[in-house]
Simulated assay, not measured.
Amino acid sequence: MVTVLLVSWTPSFATQVGLSEKVLVFPYETDFSFVALIPQKEMALRAFTLCMRVATELPEERQIILFAYRTADYDELNVWREKDGRVSFYLSGDGVFFRLPPLSTFRTSLCLTWESRSGLAAFWADGRRSTYQVYKPGHSVRPKGTVLLGQDPDKHLGGLEATQSFVGEMTDVNMWDFVLSRSMIQAWHYGHKVPKGNIFDWASLEYELSGNVLVVDDD
C-alpha cells in the first residue's frame, strides 16, 4: 500500500529536509510542478557524478527533462531524454548524446560522470557504463543557480513548458563533486553503502515542492 506523505496542489516553497526511502511522483504533465533542490555546497564544478533512479511511461518520442541546473543567464547542467530516445546532457551550450537502454515503467538506475581535465563523460545505466565521449574539456560549471527536478526553466525560475516536464517517479537523487569509481557506482546501483553525496544526499536533502508533486514511501 502506498502512503502519501505530502501533496502540494499550489506553489509551496517551505524548505523540507530528507527523502530517505521516499519517492517523488510527478503524476501528469504540467508547466508548474517541480521540486527545487538546495545544494549542500556551491556548485562550482570541474567534475561531478550525478545519480538518480527514474521510471516513466511517457513515449520515447516525448522529450523529458531529468535534471536542470540554471544560473541567471545559462543552462549550466541539463540532463534530458531526447525525442529520438537518446539520453543527453548539456553544459552551457550544445549537448552530448548517448544511446542507452530505454527508460520505462520499470525503474532505471542512471548515473552521469564528467570531469573537466580530460572532458571524459559517460552515462551508467543499471551499473553498466556507456562508451566514453569527450565533451567540453576545460569547462567549469558555475555556481549560484537553481536546481529543479520535473521542469526545464528557459529563464531563471521561469519559462516552464508542459511538453518537456517529467512525468513518472524519481528517487535517490545524489550528486558528488568528483567522479565516482566504477565499483562505487555499481555499489550505489545495488543499494550498497557508498560515500554520501557532498552536493546532494537524498537522505538529508533540502528541497522545496511546488505544484502537484507527491512524496510517497518507496515500497
Score class of each variant (00 low, 15 high):
D172F: 00
R70A: 11
M175L: 01
D219R: 13
R107A: 03
E60Y: 02
Q133P: 00
N212H: 15
W80Q: 06
I65E: 10
K41I: 02
V173W: 05
V167H: 03
S181K: 14
V215A: 02
K144Q: 13
G85A: 06
V179T: 14
Q133E: 08
Y90A: 12
S33I: 07
K22E: 08
M184V: 12
V173L: 01
L24R: 04
G191I: 04
K193Q: 13
V194S: 09
E29C: 08
D94N: 13
S181V: 06
F13N: 14
V134K: 14
T56P: 02
L100T: 01
T131G: 09
R129F: 08
D218A: 13
S116K: 06
M52G: 06
F123W: 04
G85C: 03
N174C: 09
L58K: 14
L91R: 12
M43R: 13
A121I: 02
S165F: 05
M52E: 07
Q186H: 12
W114I: 00
A47D: 02
T15D: 01
D201V: 03
S118K: 12
E82Y: 07
G211F: 05
E206Y: 08
S181D: 11
Y69H: 10
R81W: 05
F32K: 14
R182Y: 10
A122Q: 10
Y132P: 00
L149E: 00
G95Y: 10
T171Q: 12
G197A: 03
A162M: 03
A203Q: 12
T30A: 06
I185M: 13
Y132A: 11
F34M: 10
W80N: 03
